[in-house]
């Protein structure tokens, strides 16, 4: 079973990973975006870490809804409302139990991903975070390592795609040949699940 501590570790592992990878995320965002993805997410997840330390939410659902709220208010770019909605909706779907199973997490995360698709209007193949998240959720039944591999594969597979959402979509064919920064950061979030489970 997964308790609030697991979800806190998931968020702090994500924050650490975003800190480590911020420059790479921003570099990926330079040719096809506005070169702020790494620094935006870094600001957001630092705020998440601070809020979790301060408020100490006691259930899995409360950890994720608090984290989502922080991202919506602090990121400053489109990734804020998108990741914020992902975590908030996942948190709400987890309910207010003190512990949840891995199957509950898979179901809740799917609800979160659905909410992100509804908010941003993106579908698989549009060269967005969805291209990492959908395969990850599909693979989550086989464990965190499988979800991580699926997310990373999904992120790499955005490279030949033409962007159909967000600022990169204005570039048309010129967005081809670049790995999507949002799919890359989404793979970091999924990879952090495994780190949270290791402790």
């Amino acid at each position: 079973m997964l308790d609030a501590q697991f979800f806190r570790r998931w968020m702090t592992a994500t924050a650490a990973s975003v800190d480590r990878e911020a420059e790479r995320l921003t570099a990926l965002d330079s040719p096809i975006g506005d070169a702020d993805h790494g620094s935006n997410l870094q600001r957001g997840f630092r705020a998440v870490r601070a809020a979790l330390d301060k408020e100490e939410p006691g259930t899995p659902g409360a950890v994720l809804t608090l984290a989502g709220r922080q991202l919506i208010s602090t990121v400053g770019g489109a990734s804020g409302p998108l990741y914020g909605t992902l975590l908030r909706r996942t948190g709400k779907a987890l309910g207010d139990g003190a512990e949840v199973g891995e199957d509950d997490l898979a179901r809740a995360l799917r609800a979160g991903v659905d909410a992100v698709m509804a908010l941003g209007g993106a579908a698989p193949g549009d060269k967005t975070m969805i291209d990492a998240l959908v395969p990850a959720v599909d693979a989550l039944g086989d464990g965190f390592a499988a979800a991580r591999a699926a997310a990373e594969e999904g992120a790499v597979a955005t490279t030949p795609l033409r962007a159909r959402k967000g600022r990169a979509s204005y570039l048309g064919e010129r967005s081809v040949g670049h790995q999507d920064p949002g799919a890359t950061s989404a793979a970091l979030l999924i990879a952090a699940l495994g780190e949270a489970g290791d402790e």
């Binding site: 709220r69 919506i72 400053g76 770019g77 489109a78 990734s79 804020g80 409302p81 998108l82 914020g84 909605t85 908030r88 908010l119 941003g120 967000g166 600022r167």
Partner: peptide, 14 residues
């Protein structure tokens, strides 16, 4: 555009 639209939608959903 972009994050302006998404942020307002996310706030409305709150």
């Amino acid at each position: 555009l972009g994050s302006a639209v998404l942020t307002v939608k996310a706030l409305l959903a709150e």
